[in-house]
Amino acid sequence: MESKSITREVQRVRYELKFRDVKVAAVRATGANMLSVTFHGDALEDFTSLSFDDHVKFVFPDASGASVRRDYTPIGHDAQRKELVLEFALHAEGAATDWARQAQVGMDAVIAGPRGSMVVPLDYDWHLLAGDLSSLPAITRRLQELPAGAKVLAVIEASDGDIREFDTKADLDVKWVKSGEELVAALRALALPAGEGYVWAAGEAVVMKAVRAVLADDKQHPREAMRVSAYWKRGASDFHEKLD
């Protein structure tokens, strides 16, 4: 199979790293295993995030009082209200999960970053979004940002309680699956549309390695128009790795 050429370019933007003191302003369940937390603080007035898969460092104390840092996608920002929304995937255990389950209005935290953005053009002929629960915030934000008529294919691993309706103007075709194995199989069976497309995927490290192989090797999708990230690794904490 011949390698496809691309004409669009991803723009990389860097920011000065800032640590911002914030307080919890609201807590809302967005699924059986997802929790949305809104933070407020004067330091958020100049917060900037230009890409749907940006990452901030969420800094908080664990049960022993030790400082913990974890990566999260800023899913919403309101400069006038000085608010920032992060969405937490609630795992069986972990310091961030423990914090999120106990989050209450008025609690203190620190948000650092993002260090930069990878701005993906909106006008690709099509977009493919794939991942597990940890990818839902980025996918949700991307679908909010894409214009009317944008063609989007999505394959998402989630339990029944975490399946959601997306707020989007895009022409969305979404397939929900129950496991990483089903996610990989669905992508392998998927016929990519004609034209120039951008592929984005994120999730567990072993699954994302298999996803990358399907997309890059089986589908021969150009690396320049693809980003596959390991957001987490089973059995490991504070893990993040870009595979493509």
Rank of each mutant, 00 (worst) to 15 (best):
S5C: 09
R8T: 00
E16V: 14
F19G: 13
V24E: 01
A26W: 08
T30H: 01
A32C: 09
S36C: 12
V37S: 03
F39G: 02
D46E: 10
S49H: 02
L50M: 11
D53T: 00
D54A: 08
D54G: 08
V56D: 01
K57W: 03
V59L: 13
G65D: 12
I75P: 01
G76N: 14
D78N: 10
Q80E: 11
V85D: 01
E87C: 14
F88Y: 06
F88G: 05
L90G: 02
A95D: 12
A96C: 11
D98A: 15
A103W: 00
A103L: 13
A109Y: 07
A112Y: 06
G113Q: 03
P114E: 04
G116W: 04
G116L: 05
S117P: 08
V119H: 04
V120Y: 04
P121H: 06
L122P: 05
D123E: 12
W126V: 01
L128S: 03
L128Y: 01
L129K: 02
L129A: 08
G131H: 00
L133W: 04
S135C: 10
S135W: 02
P137D: 02
T140Y: 00
L143K: 09
Q144M: 10
E157D: 09
D160S: 15
G161V: 13
R164N: 07
D171F: 11
K178E: 14
A186R: 06
A186P: 07
L187F: 04
L190A: 12
A194T: 15
E196T: 11
G197K: 00
V199A: 05
A201N: 06
A202L: 11
V206H: 12
R212T: 03
A213T: 15
V214T: 06
Q220E: 15
Q220T: 07
A225C: 07
A225K: 05
A230R: 02
K242M: 05
K242T: 02
D244H: 00
